[in-house]
């Protein structure tokens, strides 16, 4: 947000990820700012999900440094941390491209599992919980309240006691975001949250993401193919192609970047200059 002095939330420096002979991400440096919605876009196979997997500890990057600057001033080097510690300590939560809910458990249970770590502490690592100590009961009540709060915001209060696998696709997407938010993240990484949503659902998603940014002091990093979502809500866009960053800036800057257009429309490398020239000419003509 504009009034917010832009301080970095997540800095990625010279990140490379190699799978055998394939260089999936090549020397990527980027920053996600606090209070921003940062979009990571690019054609299929550009390495976006690989970047996500590096950020959230599912892959160990070949090279590079990823720093999370938490709101309280602590810094975490994510490339050295176990995946579950990244969520627990560095407060980076993620969702998945193919939804990964606990399908056989109810909607409420899904949101309760996300609050596992504080609840474990409150139950004195289960021992106190077995004997039903008061502090655990209190903590559980708070956890249910937090779950209810998110259920209200994704309009699923009515379905709290249904199995997660029973929900329609769009609701499952929203539930996954709510579940990630229940871990209390300071950076929320969303892998194609709008995939498979109809226009009405994708509008709702936009509202939800704007709400998260406004109310929860949580930065958002998202991978998205749906340009409506990207252009409408992102403050900052990073474009990847073949693992290399080709553009970085606001929606308007990126939209008119010839390299981005070339990457999306599939122009040969040699033709990039020509396309660039063409765009400049059109731009000049458009000017009064």
């Amino acid at each position: 947000m504009a009034d917010h002095a832009k301080t970095p939330l997540l800095t990625v420096e010279h990140l490379s990820m190699r799978f055998g002979g394939l260089l999936a991400v090549n020397d990527l440096s980027m920053t996600a700012y606090r209070g921003d919605i940062t979009a990571l876009i690019g054609p299929n196979g550009a390495g976006k999900t690989t970047v996500f997997n590096c950020l959230t500890g599912f892959y160990k990057p070949t090279e590079g440094r990823i720093t999370m600057h938490r709101n309280d001033g602590q810094e975490f080097l994510l490339e050295r941390m176990d995946d579950f510690r990244i969520t627990r300590n560095a407060r980076v939560a993620r969702t998945f491209q193919n939804i990964r809910l606990f399908g056989g458990m109810t909607v409420l249970e899904n949101l309760m599992i996300a609050q596992h770590n504080p609840l474990m502490r409150a139950s004195k690592q289960t021992i106190g919980g077995i004997f039903g100590i008061a502090s655990f009961k209190r903590a559980e009540k708070e956890a249910v309240e937090k779950a209810e709060y998110w259920l209200e915001h994704i309009n699923l209060t009515q379905r709290a006691d249904d199995a997660a696998a029973d929900l329609p696709y769009g609701d499952q997407r929203k539930l996954e975001i709510a579940r990630a938010m229940c871990t209390g993240p300071e950076l929320l990484c969303l892998d194609e949250p709008a995939a498979g949503l109809n226009p009405a659902e994708s509008d709702e998603l936009n509202k939800l993401l704007l709400f998260v940014r406004k109310e929860c002091d949580t930065g958002i990093l998202l991978i998205e193919h749906d340009m409506n979502v990207v252009m409408e809500i992102s403050d900052h866009i990073v474009v990847l192609d073949y693992g290399v960053k080709i553009a970085d800036g606001t929606a308007d800057e990126v939209r008119s970047d010839p390299k981005v257009i070339a990457a999306y429309l599939g122009v040969e490398d040699e033709e990039v200059d020509a396309v660039e020239h063409e765009i400049e000419e059109t731009a000049a003509e458009a000017r009064p």
């Binding site: 599912f58 995946d83 990244i86 969520t87 939560a93 606990f102 056989g104 596992h116 139950s123 289960t126």
Partner: peptide, 27 residues
Amino acid sequence: RLRRLPIGRAWEALREDEIACRSLGLN
């Protein structure tokens, strides 16, 4: 009793999806 405590719920979550568990900060 354990089923209703966080540890029991985590066991069931583990059965449902281990990767999702780790993404939610469960060891």
